[in-house]
Design a protein around this nucleic acid. Structure first.
Lengths: 273, 273
DNA sequence: AAGTGGTCTAGACCACTTT
DNA sequence: AAGTGGTCTAGACCACTTC
């Protein structure tokens, strides 16, 4: 359970300072001037170890992870090193720190996470989550383009979902979704309909797949006849098209979404920092 | 030149540790249990002081700022505290650290900054900067909506710019721009045409106004007759509409942009983290 | 009072760059 | 060799939360 220290003799050793603990009693011999590959500071290794525990479900979304002192003891490093590791995890939105309470695994069952991945905001009023009406939920074989984006083989099992989302009763989003069948075995139309709120919450709680980040490509298109009906607009109405690939731990793609957004009373919000 | 320490007696004082320097010899008396307003840790105050020096131009874009030890001496705090302040400034993209060399003021004259604010990426091939053709550069009075977004008074002097931007000779972007006249006095069509590369670089070098961050609202629209001509497409072609308000230090708005993007061979790229 | 994260300090050593 | 940022440690104290 000790951190490995590749390409690094032993951090903070050969010390004259009081009671230097020589953290790096690693599993790897400290000789071998192997100029080989990686090189990673201790806190990055701790970060990786904590991430593994998050991924394995040792600490579940919403739960508190062990305190900094505890983790420092567990990994045999100083609290400062654990702190730096957790700082990065917090910056990555994998955990949330709360002073006086502890550090908690991030979850999609939170307003904070909702808004992070919902970029379509009303021009007026406060953001809120749309209601879903499911049109299709079915299993099929992955077409080539979908397979490529999800890093599957063409023909692999896929769950396909199509829905319309409405704000205050006004249909605004047509969304198609492709999910690796292997990860979402028991996913049915019923369970989707029952569930209120963002689908990422369902994925996280029911299927143990936590979405971490996503890449989105946005374009402008015009509504075809079918889309016009669903959104109750004229054919030719301009729509935003957003293609999103979502990733879980290890940059593994777990979802492909293609959304068509009606942007007459809403807009796609983006902050450039 | 010492940091002020409101609502805070004296960080790290009453120490038994060896040679504790008691950093907070502040200008404010340490009595007065005023429960009043703010409360900010030392490193935030240091961050604010450094930001002031950046804003005032004491250290110019591209230049190196004083080393951590120097700043620690200047502000009479530990190097660790300066380090944490600079960490945040680096996270905000105000400075860039380079190991072994120093910490440098960020500048828009860098590929890194270019891509940060250019979200339209080619579907194929590597991102590169478009060429500009200026259609209009003129002074006018701020219309109400522009004045509101730039936090000016209706009728204040404004510089208006309209241009078409092309990738590899293919016109792809129509962009209108509104700038506070007071900040950009000597801005002429000539100087714009001469200048290659992103306009933020020009603003930074020639007008001392450094753009820090921006808010963008994206919609789908269709090309009108004039726009169709400029982009050499049919009227009714769907276009991305992006309205951007850019801010400099102190969240002061300094630019309004309205762009129309042709997204047949390009897309608007966004990463959700 | 005890436990948590948050701040601050001091000092050692490492990695990288330049002289 | 000297200077820079980067890592790691140790310890003290502060702020917040809960018991």
């Amino acid at each position: 359970m000790n951190p490995v220290t590749p390409n690094q003799t032993s951090p903070g050793s050969t010390a004259s300072a009081p009671a230097a603990p020589a953290a790096g009693t690693a599993a790897v011999p400290a000789n071998a001037a192997a100029p080989a590959p990686t090189f990673s500071p201790l806190y990055q290794q701790i970060k990786a170890l904590i991430t593994q525990s998050l991924q394995s479900g040792e600490w579940k979304p919403g739960e508190m992870i062990p305190s900094e002192v505890e983790l420092a003891n567990r990994y045999k490093v100083s609290q400062g090193t654990v702190r730096k590791a957790i700082d990065e995890l917090a910056a990555d939105n994998l955990v949330m720190r709360r002073q006086g309470k502890g550090t908690f695994v991030s979850t999609h069952h939170e307003a904070r996470a909702h808004i992070r991945f919902l970029r379509l905001r009303p021009d007026e009023g406060v953001p809120h989550y749309p209601e879903s009406r499911f049109l299709e939920v079915k299993r099929l074989r992955a077409p080539a383009d979908v397979a490529r984006l999800l890093e599957l083989k063409s023909g692999d099992a896929i769950i396909y979902i199509k829905r319309v989302q409405s704000f205050d009763g006004i249909p605004t989003i047509i969304e198609e979704q492709w999910l690796p069948g292997q990860l979402f075995k028991g996913l049915t139309a019923e369970r989707l309909s029952e569930y209120k709120g963002p689908m990422y919450g369902l994925f996280e709680s029911e299927f143990g797949t936590r979405m971490i980040r996503a890449d989105e490509k946005v374009r402008a298109v015009v509504a075809g006849p079918d889309e016009a009906v669903l959104l109750q607009v004229e054919p030719g109405t301009p729509l935003l098209s957003a293609e999103r690939v979502s990733f879980t731990y290890g940059d593994k793609p777990v979802e492909l979404r293609r959304g068509l957004y009606l942007t007459t009373r809403h807009h796609y919000q983006n902050d450039l920092n």
